[in-house]
Every structure is written in structure tokens, then in C-alpha cells.
Design a protein around this nucleic acid. Structure first.
Lengths: 211, 211
DNA sequence: AGCATTGTTGATCGTGTGATCAACAAGAGG
DNA sequence: CCTCTTGTTGATCACACGATCAACAATGCT
């Protein structure tokens, strides 16, 4: 019955060790937040001395920033991938709204909210946050522009509307973080709101038009 | 040229001193965030020893929590006061959306966002957050219900829609915190979205119907 | 087998945090 | 003027943080 039997961590290649550290940071952040990313916490998770983590990172701000980027970028790509399987702009926008509000990614939402405040003291992180927000906005903007071209939507400023939808989604998710018990049919309400913004027909964004 | 000439702070009544401390905490939080509320920070601002702050507070979590409640409750009451001066539901809802997105309360928004994450480790704060969110939701719900009664709106679940609007406003404000340069006519876009949700006529929420 | 490279350790420093408490002194009441 | 209450101090403790670096040892190479 020994908790950590091996006294010394076995030697690994720098690439492998670096990957271990970033992976441990990723898991830790998802479980306990970006603020839990301390030298000693990450080191303990990997099973190495704290100094080793410091050796593979310029400083902790950088690790926090890159961990945030890793987690969030993965989510963006995952959802963007789902999008491409849908036929038209209305279906895509409906899927976006529905997917992002299904409460299955609350851990990532927590990371977002944390990054917004931590970015005040971590300029590297702040830059990452802006970058990842831009990526999300582009996803929305693409769908809105498609709908404009098709005639499904009627939007004068697609970029602005994309920012707007993104902000709404973020806010509703952040709210779910604190008030998990709140409203259930958030997707439907948001769909209706988005319809109002993009000038789409009422109900055109709901996944199942009619039973 | 002496920065702090008096060596010892002059004796004051407990009530007065307690008020000084909570006021200093309030200012500090608005300037540097809830995380800046440390024993030594607050004490330095009041001009007393750190032990005195601890003497007037059960622990720092409580001070953080009460400071949050003070700041946010003041904002709620202020905006709710503005509301009562407007004639109908449409005007009131339009004013709400417009006022909350005018970027004049970004410091309070920063406090909100910080509280969402700090609430994970500070249960007292988490309770305060839920309480203050409820207060805001009630403000929105009241307006929506009025509009329902008047016939200006057509909403089946006023409570749910109120939560929804609140979440949207929070999200857009949080976004403005990071992307201050973003979109300018956020109020107009949100008004259109809210119109979609409450079933109001397009443009009925914009403050100036037509020039 | 011996050596050189280099991944790894862990103690250490300086700073910051909340909390505690014996000692102090300002002010009020006698 | 003295005394006692009590507001106030600041040193102190235990802990956690990021960062640094001399010492160590595992591994590959000759």
C-alpha cells in the first residue's frame, strides 16, 4: 500500500514531458478552474517536482494562457465541425444555438468566465481571450452571411449581429453556471430572440418545425 | 512632505469605523476588483492596521460577499428607480435595455463577472450572487408582465423570458468588458432580439420610433 | 566500462495571504 | 487627576505562491 511508490519520475523526452504537463494543466483547469493552475498543483498531477513544470514553461501566466486557448479552441472546432453537416443557414444557426445551450459544456463556460477576469492581470491571457472570441464570432458571422445570401435572413451588419449572438450565448451560459436550476427551454427562447435579430421567420430556427 | 503624518489612527466609534471599512472596500472593489479586497489593502485605504479590519469582520469572505451585495444592490435600485418614471411597458423595457448597455457601469459588470467565478470558492458570496440575480430577474419580470397585461407583449412564461433577457444583458456587458471596441449599436440589436422574444412589434422598443 | 549529456529534484528565497493576540494608548467617567 | 474601558496596533504564525539553481542521476554514446 504505497501511494507514490517510485521516488523519482522516470526520464522522458522533452516533447513527451511537455505534453504531459500541458495535458495535466488542461484537465486541472477543466476540473478546478484556471486559478488552480499553480506550479505545485500541476507538478503533483504529473507526478514530478514543481521545478520541472517551471522548467518547461517561461512562467505560469503563459501556461494559464495556453491552457485556456487549448480548451476553448477545441470546443470551437468541435462545434464548427457539427455545423458543416447541416444543409442550410437556418438549420445551422438553430443547431448552434441549441448545441451551445445544452449545458453539456459548463466546464468550458467556467473557464471562459474565469478568463475574462484573470485577463485583467494577465495580458497574455487577455490576448488569448480576444483571439478566441474572434474565432467564435467568425463562426457566427459565417452562418449569418450565408443566411443573408440565401434570403433566409435579412441583416445589414452581419458582423455586429454575430457579436451580439455570441454575447447572448455567453451570458446565458454564464447564468446557467450559477443558476443551473433556472429555466429549461432556454434554447427556444434564444432561438426566438435570434430570429428577431436576423429577421428570420418566427420558428424557422427551431430544430423541429412541426410535429 | 509626509505621506501619512499621523502615526496612530484616531479613535472612532465602532459604527463609524465599520462604515469606513465597508466604504473603503466598496471603492477598492470598484477600482481593482473583488480579488483586491485583502486585509492589508483595505486597511491601508482606511489608514489603519490590518488587524483592525479583521477585528470588524468575521473573515474576508464575508467582506467580499457584503461588498458585492452593496455595490450590485445599489445599481439595481438605481435603475429600477429610473424605470418608474416611464409610462408604459414598452418604454420601460426599452429604457432597461438601453440603460444597461450604455457602458457607463462597466465597473459593476466586472464585479459581476468576478463574483461568478469567486463564488465557486466562497459559498457566502455564491448565495449573495443568487440573491442579487433574483432581484434583477424580478425587475425584468415585472416589466414583462405589465406588457402582457397591456397587450403590448405576448409572453407565455414571463419568468423564463425575464431570466433570458437578464442573461443576454449580462453576456453583452461582459463582452464589452473585454472587447470595448466592438459593436456600437448594441442597444438596437438587443432591442430587436427582445422584441422577438416578447412578441412585440418590430421597433416598438427603440426609444425614438421615428425621426 | 567509463564518460558526457541532460532530464530531474527539492531546498530556498521573497512575497503575499488570512488570522490571532498580547500590548498599547486614547478617551470617558469618577 | 486618576482609572478603567476599549479601540487600535503590529508583530507573528502557518500557509501558498512563482521563481531560481546547485546538485543529482538516468540515459546514450564512445
Amino acid at each position: 500500500m504505497s501511494s507514490t511508490p517510485q521516488k523519482r519520475a522516470l526520464r522522458k523526452s522533452p516533447e513527451e514531458r511537455a505534453a504531459e504537463i500541458t495535458e495535466a494543466a488542461r484537465e486541472l483547469a477543466l476540473e478546478a478552474g484556471l486559478m488552480a493552475l499553480t506550479l505545485r498543483n500541476v507538478a503533483a498531477r504529473v507526478g514530478v517536482a514543481s521545478g520541472l513544470v517551471a522548467h518547461y514553461q517561461p512562467n505560469m501566466d503563459a501556461l494559464v494562457s495556453s491552457t485556456f486557448a487549448t480548451i476553448v479552441a477545441a470546443e470551437t472546432q468541435e462545434v464548427a465541425g457539427l455545423l458543416s453537416q447541416r444543409p442550410g443557414p437556418s438549420e445551422r444557426l438553430g443547431l448552434l444555438v441549441d448545441t451551445l445551450l445544452d449545458n453539456s459544456r459548463l466546464d468550458v463556460t467556467a473557464i471562459w468566465v474565469e478568463a475574462w477576469t484573470l485577463g485583467r492581470r494577465n495580458e497574455t491571457l487577455a490576448a488569448s481571450v480576444r483571439e478566441q472570441m474572434d474565432a467564435w464570432q467568425k463562426v457566427f458571422q459565417g452562418v449569418v452571411e450565408d443566411g443573408n445570401a440565401t434570403g433566409a435572413f435579412n441583416v445589414s451588419d452581419a458582423a455586429a449581429v454575430a457579436w451580439q449572438i455570441l454575447g447572448m450565448v455567453d451570458g446565458l451560459n454564464a447564468q446557467a453556471l450559477v443558476r443551473w436550476d433556472g429555466v429549461n427551454d432556454r434554447g427556444t427562447h434564444l432561438a426566438r430572440a435570434v430570429e428577431g435579430m436576423v429577421g428570420a421567420a418566427r420558428g424557422s430556427l427551431t430544430p423541429k418545425p412541426s410535429a
